[in-house]
Amino acid sequence: MINTILSEIFYCLIGVIFILVGIRALKDETLASRSLTAAFWFLLAAIFMVGPYLPQAAVGASIVVLAVLTGLNKVKPSKGEALDAEQGRKEADRLGNKIFVPVVCLAGLALLAATFLPFGANNAIGISGLVCLVIVFAVTGAPAKAAANEGSRLMDSVGITGILPQLLAALGAVFTAAGVGDVISGAVSVLIPEGNMFIAVLVYCAGMALFTMIMGNGFAAFSVITVGIGMPFLIAKGANPAVVGALGLSAGYCGTLVTPMAANFNIMPAALLEMRNKYGIIKAQAVVAAVMFALHVAIMYFWAL
């Protein structure tokens, strides 16, 4: 109960950050679609803050509105104050390695809170985010408004794809309710001899890598392949879900290493480095990707079962 209340408080804080991003957009006179951009963030904030008390279909309809706004390309990052390299250099010289303390604490405290506090691993992230805010103020001497300014600046630069994981989990739920998982598992069951867990692991990892290559996005592949293959052939047969999930997504990343679809990671940097062959990075990564893939299959087989 207390955990749920705490979670709702954290979701309200996330909502506040979304509202700040919307306000940033409204203030940016150069942004052509600033009222629609702001509308996107305000609506998203409302879903986070009061969504649980609304009819579910109303939340669903709001998500459709969000999708229409992004689909019509009306949600844009706003200018706001950019990072200032000169200030960064000056502060780096003043603070030295102390600047690493808050970020190390962010991960460290989250782990400690998840392990030792009774509020659950999910709330641990929020707790650590708040405690580290105090630490970062102490270390940098930043003014209080920096939390709002920098938090919304970074959220704005993460942008709308920040809600993609959450949306993909919802897509997975629709797929499950529609029976998509059953169709995939029916088709895949031809490949997997009854009770042969090694082949099941291999097919799941290969499915993750292959779908990630096609879509260029491991997250999207994860919701499809895990519902269709991971659940029925591994987890339902007693495999450890945390191991299957963790290794499943990173098995997908083996596919990311060898696909031009993941342009940010493989193609853009080749241009950035002025390489003659724009597929040079993919070529260099192919062997490591193959070795890592084989290791994923082996570790999942021996560890999850």
Partner: peptide
């Protein structure tokens, strides 16, 4: 998102 203010 709750980690973003610190990182920012």
């Amino acid at each position: 998102v709750l980690t973003l203010p610190v990182i920012g």
